[in-house]
C-alpha cells in the first residue's frame, strides 16, 4: 500500500468549530455598525478618535506582546471599545495614549492575553479620566460642524483643548444628576443625545451584542443580569421617590450601561467562567452602577462598577465552582450494600 505521510497527534482528533481569533474578529465585526453610527452622528472626528485609540492599543501589543499577538484581534477590540467610550473632539494624542496605557498596564504587564485582571479598555479610560478630566467630560452635540470638531482633535500633544468653536452639552446622566432634567427614552434609544461615541444609540448596541450572544461569543447571562438588577433597583427607588430617582428605562438606556453591559462586562478574560458566577458578577455590576449614579460624586458609574467587579472575579470563580461528579455520594438508600 502506498502510504501518505501520517500525522500522529493526541486525542481528541476532532476539534470544535470555534477558535479564539474567530471569537475576537467576530466581536470586532459586530462593533463595526456601532462605529459607523458614531461616524454618522459625529462625522470624521469619530473615525479619527477610534483610529487613534486602536493604533495606541496595537503599537505596544506589536512591540512587547507575544509574536503575532495583534493578529488575534484582541487589541483591536480594546482600541475600538476605548474609542467608543471617548468624547468626539478629544485630542487624538490623548486617545492614542489611553489605548497604549490600557494595553501596557491593563494587559501586557500581567502577561498578555488571558492573564489580565481588569478590562484593558476600561483601565485606559480610567487613566484618561484621571489625567484629563476636562477633556474627558466635554460632550459635543451630535450633528454639528465637522471641521470644528476635527480642529480640536488635532490639538498638539500636551496642549490643552480650545473649545471655543464647538457646541457642547451635558450628557443625559449629567442633566439628570446636576440639573434634575430627564431626557426622553426614544432619544436615548436612537442616539440623538450628547455623549461619547458609542454610548449614544442603545438600540444599535443591543442588536450588535445580541448577534454575539446568539453565536455564543458572549455570555448572555452577564448583560441580562446587569439589566435586570438595574431595572429592579431603579423601579423600586422610583416608586419610593419618583421626583428624585428616574425610572428603569432611563437608567437602562442612558450613559454607557448598554455598551458596558454588552461589550465590557462580557470580556471573557475579565469575567467569571462559571454560569452561576456570571449571574453574581452581573448583579454586582448592576448594584454598583445604581449606587454610583444616584449617590456617588460622578454622573456615570458603569466604568468603575465593572472595574470593581473585575477585581472580584477570581473570588467569584472560586465560590461558584460546581460540585465535582461523584464527590458527594448520591446513591439511593435501597442500592447501598
Amino acid at each position: 500500500m502506498n502510504l501518505p505521510r501520517l500525522i500522529v497527534s493526541a486525542s481528541p482528533h476532532l476539534g470544535g468549530p470555534v477558535s479564539t481569533p474567530t471569537i475576537m474578529w467576530n466581536v470586532v465585526g459586530s462593533l463595526l455598525p456601532i462605529v459607523a453610527a458614531s461616524v454618522w452622528f459625529f462625522g470624521p472626528s469619530a473615525l479619527a478618535v477610534l483610529a487613534a485609540a486602536t493604533a495606541g492599543a496595537l503599537v505596544p501589543e506589536r512591540l512587547f506582546g507575544r509574536r503575532g499577538a495583534p493578529g488575534d484581534g484582541s487589541a483591536v477590540i480594546t482600541g475600538l471599545l476605548l474609542g467608543l467610550t471617548l468624547p468626539p473632539g478629544l485630542p487624538l494624542w490623548m486617545a492614542f495614549l489611553g489605548g497604549a496605557f490600557g494595553i501596557v498596564f491593563g494587559k501586557l504587564v500581567f502577561g498578555g492575553l488571558g492573564q489580565n485582571v481588569f478590562n484593558p479598555a476600561l483601565l485606559g479610560r480610567a487613566f484618561l479620566q484621571a489625567a484629563f478630566p476636562v477633556a474627558l467630560t466635554t460632550w459635543p452635540v451630535p450633528g454639528q460642524d465637522a471641521a470644528a470638531l476635527l480642529s480640536t482633535n488635532l490639538t498638539a500633544p500636551l496642549m490643552s483643548v480650545d473649545l471655543a468653536d464647538t457646541i457642547t452639552s451635558a450628557t443625559p446622566l449629567g442633566l439628570m444628576k446636576f440639573e434634575g432634567t430627564l431626557t426622553d427614552v426614544p432619544a436615548l434609544l436612537f442616539g440623538t443625545t450628547g455623549g461619547c461615541l458609542g454610548e449614544t444609540s442603545a438600540l444599535l448596541i443591543l442588536i450588535c451584542g445580541g448577534y454575539l450572544a446568539l453565536r455564543r461569543f458572549l455570555d448572555w447571562r452577564i448583560p441580562v443580569s446587569i439589566f435586570a438588577t438595574v431595572a429592579v433597583l431603579a423601579t423600586a427607588l422610583h416608586l419610593v421617590d419618583g421626583e428624585r430617582y428616574p425610572g428603569a428605562l432611563f437608567m437602562l438606556f442612558s450613559g454607557g450601561l448598554v455598551l458596558g453591559a454588552m461589550y465590557m462586562a462580557t470580556d471573557m478574560v475579565t469575567s467569571p467562567s462559571t454560569r452561576r458566577g456570571a449571574w453574581i458578577f452581573g448583579a454586582g455590576i448592576g448594584v454598583l452602577v445604581v449606587v454610583i449614579r444616584l449617590w456617588g460624586g460622578l454622573a456615570e458609574g458603569v466604568m468603575y462598577a465593572i472595574l470593581l467587579m473585575n477585581a472580584l472575579v477570581p473570588f467569584i470563580d472560586r465560590i461558584t465552582r460546581p460540585r465535582v461528579f461523584g464527590t458527594v455520594p448520591t446513591v439511593p438508600a435501597e442500592a447501598r450494600p
Binding site: 500525522i7 497527534s9 481528541p12 482528533h13 476532532l14 476539534g15 477558535s19 479564539t20 481569533p21 471569537i23 507575544r66 488575534d72 484582541s74 498578555g112 492575553l113 488571558g114 492573564q115 455570555d219 471573557m268 478574560v269 469575567s271 467569571p272 467562567s273 462559571t274 454560569r275
Partner: peptide, 12 residues
C-alpha cells in the same frame, strides 16, 4: 485538528 494554539481566554 491542526490549528495554532492561543493563550487561554477564560471563556469557560
Amino acid at each position: 485538528r491542526r490549528r495554532a494554539s492561543h493563550p487561554c481566554i477564560r471563556c469557560g
